[in-house]
């Protein structure tokens, strides 16, 4: 066949495939939003949940999800950044390094329940952290590290060697080259990694059931003392997240309006993830512009 025709045909096929996916995505999001949003008024977001009675909200669960996400990212981003830099820039290119890369990648395929049980037996029981946000955040870190590390490592590797040579030729040390040249270049990729993994954190239930727990004790949002059990900032309190709440409603919930609350909570979750994605990309673009001196 004529190469021009093939070219044209390929473009068409790609467009059709993208179209199919886009339509499906819109349908799914639409379905969740349409079934969820009209069910509840805005104060759904601002009232505590109910174990049995109808009319519960998701205030504490929503906050717990966000707080847990922030903590997990605070722990896992620096760790994976360091490890990613080491593996891409400093580690010798030998069998051992390849072996380690493989290990890290298979770590990411562990089912969340296994990671959750690891967190439960080690953090909750052995280290006596109890069912707490901290246990949950550390467990999520276990999950997050492989994905983020590989992501950052690959991003650094994809920067062409000329850039490194350029930095070194200017008399910069390797560390200065990494900090001043390589990292700014990879900001968009790192942001992708962060967004993907935070999506996973938001949606994760199985790993958290055994670590941050399934109960959301009522919080007092005026109490800012991180040691008080009713303070939203306390990291040692049990904290049910939104995804765990949805899971609970769908599996063992006796709540009378479980269907409605679960549909509405799913809709809220999607909106929060959307908001977070937009924010992350916005900040990422800003950061990139600042670091690379504008484009």
């Amino acid at each position: 066949m004529d190469v021009k025709k093939v070219d044209h045909l390929a473009k068409r096929i790609i467009q059709v495939m993208v179209g199919i996916v886009a339509v499906l995505l819109v349908l799914i999001i639409g379905y969740i939003l349409v079934t969820g949003l009209p069910q509840e008024s805005i104060d759904f977001l601002f009232k505590p949940s109910q174990a049995v009675k109808a009319g519960g909200g998701i205030r504490d669960q929503l906050w717990n999800s966000i707080y847990l996400l922030i903590l997990a990212l605070l722990i896992s981003i620096p760790l994976s950044l360091g490890a990613g830099i080491y593996l891409a820039e400093y580690a010798p290119d030998n069998k051992l390094t390849h072996f380690i890369q493989t290990l890290i990648e298979i770590l990411s395929s562990l089912p969340s329940i296994v990671v959750g049980l690891f967190g439960y037996l080690v953090l909750v029981i052995r280290f006596n952290m109890g069912f707490s946000i901290l246990s949950g955040a550390l467990t999520l870190t276990v999950f997050n590290l492989p994905l983020l590390t590989s992501n950052i490592e690959n991003a650094l590797r994809s920067v062409s060697d000329e850039q490194r040579e350029g930095g070194l030729a200017l008399g910069l040390s390797r560390w200065q080259t990494i900090k001043g040249i390589l990292l700014p270049r990879t900001v968009p990729e790192i942001i992708t990694g962060v967004v993907l993994s935070s999506g996973r954190i938001f949606g994760e239930a199985a790993a958290l059931i055994y670590t941050s727990g399934q109960s959301a004790p009522a919080l007092n949002y005026l109490n800012w003392n991180p040691l008080s059990p009713e303070s939203p900032l306390n990291v040692m309190r049990p904290a049910e997240t939104l995804a765990v709440h949805i899971w609970k409603l769908n599996t063992e919930g006796l709540t009378i309006d479980a269907d409605i609350v679960s549909a509405a909570a799913s809709a809220v979750l999607i909106l929060v993830v959307l908001l977070f994605n937009i924010l992350a990309h916005y900040l990422g673009n800003k950061l990139e512009r600042k670091l690379t001196g504008g484009k």
Binding site: F131, Q214, P217, K248
Partner: peptide, 12 residues
């Protein structure tokens, strides 16, 4: 008294 209830199954 804080009552902290978690699932996990009868075996757990």
């Amino acid at each position: 008294t804080t009552i902290n209830v978690q699932g996990g199954g009868s075996g757990t």
